[in-house]
Structure formats: C-alpha cells, structure tokens
Design a protein around this nucleic acid. Structure first.
Lengths: 241, 241
DNA sequence: CAGTGGTCTAGACCACAAC
DNA sequence: TTGTGGTCTAGACCACTGG
C-alpha cells in the first residue's frame, strides 16, 4: 500500500475532510450504509480512509449536522432512520430580496403614529402598562407593484431614538438592523385572511389567504419590535436541501 | 441569545471552545466588538484567551456559522454589519410533531387511487407523458381532532412498490422515509384558500386561509413524490434564534 | 509577495452512557 | 467498568487574496 498520507507528493490528492464527508454521504444515500446502520468507530474509519482521527471526527460531525447521523458516546455513530428534515430559510431584507430578482425596489411610508401599546401587543411582547410604541405601516414595491406590506411596532421604551427617526425615505427595518444589530428573534409563518389594510395596499380581496411572516425581536431581554410582513398574492417561501 | 455554554457543571480548568464562543458572542452583542470591527488574528486571540490556535479557530468558525462574523483569508475576521437572518425550521414527521405536544396521534386514509399524472403534476415533477402516479389523501389527528390533511402523489415509475403498498394503517410518509431515506427536497410555505377537500376534513370554511407546506422530493434525479400538507385553523410554524 | 485563515496530524485526556 | 465520541494541544503546510 503506497503512502497516501498528507505529506506525500503522489498524484493522489490529499484526503480532506470534505472528501471524506462526500464519501460518507454517498455511502449513506446510495451505498451500503442504509438507515439504521451502525458505523465503525472513528479510529477504524480513520484508518480505512487513510486520515487522522481528528479529520474523521470533523467529517462525521459535519455529516451529523447535515442530519444524516446520530452520534452518541459509547453507543457509536448510527445512520438516522429518517433524516432530520430541517428547512433553512434565509431572511433577506426586503430590498435585497426584490433587487435579487432584477426588479427595481420602491418604498413608501403609509402611516406613522406614536400610541400607547394595545393590550394584545403588551402581552405578546411583555411590555409594561401604558408603554408607548411607534406604529408604522410601510409598503415595499417591486417594479412599482406592491410586494409586501409591513406592519411594525417599535417599543419606544427600549428604543427612544425611534421617536425621532424619519421613516419616510427608507424603511424601519434597515434602520433597526443598523441600530440593534444582534438580538433574539422569534419568527412565525402563517396564513391570514386579508384585512382592510392588506386589501387597500396589496392586490387582495377581503378574506383572501395572505402569507405572512411575523417577527418579534428582543435585545437584552427587552422587547424591541414586532413586525408582520404581508405578502402579495401567490407568494411562496421556498428552499431546497 | 442561544445558550452556547455547555449544559451541566463543567468545571474544567481548560478553556473550551464553547466558553470562548460565549465570550466572543458577548463581546459582539454587548461588548466592545460592534458591527464592522476587525478582530485580531487567530494567533493573537488564542494567546489572549489562553487556548491553542486550533481551539480559537473552531470557536471563530462556529461563531461565524451563527452569522455574526465574516471571515476571509488575508483580510481577517470582521463583525458583520448585519447578522445573517436565517430561520431554521425542523420539519418533524407529523406523528412526532403531534406526540410531542402530548396529544394522541391518529391516522386515517381518506382515498387512494392510481391515475395517469395530470399535466400540472407532470410539469411540476418532470414526469414522462402518461406516467402513472399513486394519489393519496390522508388525515392526521391530534387527540381525535383533524390536524393536517395530506395530499400526496407518488411517482409509480420511480417507486413501483408504492402500487402494492397498503396505506390504510400508517401514512405514506413513514413508509417513504424508510424506503427512500435521503433525497433532494424542495420545500415551500404558502397560504392557500381552503378547497372542498380541506373543508370536508379540516375545520375550515370554503376560501379560508390555510397554511400549507408543499414538499417535492427527488432521488437520483427521478421525481419521487409531491405532497401538500394543509394545516388546521390558526396553525403557525415558529422558530427562534 | 506576504499575511491570514483553512486544514491536517499525532497524541492525549476526559465525559458520558451502555453494559 | 469500559468503549466511544468530544475536545485540547503544538506544530506544520497550504490556499487564498489584499496590498
């Protein structure tokens, strides 16, 4: 057996953990390692693949993160009976999402007000009684056609700068990500019946099914903002894996 | 903020990469490393944190995967101006989703038929003309209440066993994941108006907004199955990060 | 061209969990 | 108790890319 190890200058390319990953995935999806198979230990695999245990460990760890493997100490590495079906959606800023399709992005502030938080919002975000919030309605256009209606609440207690901010030229989202960049987020996808606001600004009839994304944001345990993004007819959020 | 530190009472004197991660994330979110900051090199950081460069590399890599950092050779490691907003949804098998809430899972086959694929399906999945498909309607219950309506098409050309399979006792999903375990998947989320089938089996009125998940699956470039999962009223798909 | 991250290695100790 | 994965280390070479 010729020496294939890393220092060799042979034509055999160095064994990288990505190659090992690829081989493992292939053995799982097409090869001999069907669902439920118990894989050999790391040491044995490393020998068989001609790499160090460290490299094999990384390969197995990453394949595991892809959802194919289940790893437990002492129990070993086992091919999952069913892969972990996890969908990963990138949530770009609306502007980027629209411009990526080649369309021209447009923005319009529909309404802006400072109000006392309604009760449902206080409960939803954990606000104090009589907390003041900024309530915004904004429209995002793709090539002049309404694409998304943004209904946003900003907690003025946590973010008093929002009271002074001017949202007539650019949306609150872009201002927020620059101001409160890293925060805890809860995202929901849901189907909603079109209300008057959506009918007025999007191409919907009253009661039409509307695909909505709701995003609540906290920063250092304080509620920052809650936003509902209503999309135009036929919108779908898609991903592959 | 996700809990990065190891669960349990790790008391080791050695600096683990999770601790390093936690510290880095804290410096980014609350500390001195605001958006745009250029971090010191790995070697310098490793010294400062009292760990090896390998460990620091792993910590930085994982923080980077969380979406906080942007790493480039020669350019160095920089704090992102805006975090990568990505939502990650786990898509459990319905049974698991229902049983996780403590409810009792129930299943019922509504209808089953072998038909020639309609044109829209042929186009959607890339099937040959006159391809035969199995068309199933199934119901999933939580504590006896209809939870999800499954409208599934299976390509009999790619999966002839489906023609013999009996789906009266358990759903096609569980059979499929055991038969075609790892495949390429396209998932869409959308809002649909309730049709007659949904009205008949779920608690919907005609035209009600229904949250649907559509999943198309291929295996080795052959279309396997297309399924639409219609959910009951008020269903939301939620995730935190 | 040179600096930074990307990765590999060999060896070691440890934590968890199955037996 | 013991086997398996989890992780750390020190040192090394390499690949990409900014200046």
């Amino acid at each position: 057996m010729p020496d294939i190890t890393r220092t060799g200058t042979a034509k055999t390319e160095t064994t990288t953990f990505r190659e090992v990953m690829a081989e493992i995935v292939q053995r799982i999806t097409e090869g001999p390692w069907g669902p439920g198979t118990l894989l050999p230990g790391e040491v044995e695999l490393a020998e068989a693949f001609g790499c160090s245990r460290t490299t094999m460990n990384r390969a197995l760890r990453e394949v595991s993160e892809l959802g194919f493997l289940d790893r437990k100490r002492k129990a070993g590495t086992r091919v999952r009976m069913a892969p972990i079906r996890q969908a990963r959606f990138e949530m770009p800023v609306v502007r980027a999402e629209i411009e990526k399709t080649g369309a021209v992005y447009g923005y319009q502030l529909v309404s802006s007000a400072v109000v006392v938080a309604p009760e449902w919002l206080r409960l939803r975000m954990g606000l104090k009684a009589r907390a003041h919030v900024v309530h915004l309605l904004c429209l995002h256009f793709a090539d002049g056609v309404a694409f998304q209606l943004e209904d946003r609440w900003i907690n003025a207690g946590a973010l008093p700068q929002a009271l002074q901010q001017d949202f007539t030229e650019s949306g609150p989202n872009e201002w927020l990500v620059a101001t409160v960049p890293f925060s805890e987020v809860e995202i929901s996808f849901l189907a909603q019946a079109a209300d008057a606001g959506m009918v007025a600004h999007l191409d919907h009839a009253l009661g039409d099914p509307v695909f909505c994304v709701e995003r609540a944001t906290w920063w250092q345990n304080a509620a920052v903002t809650l936003v509902t993004l209503a999309h135009r007819r036929g919108y779908r959020m898609t991903t592959r894996y």
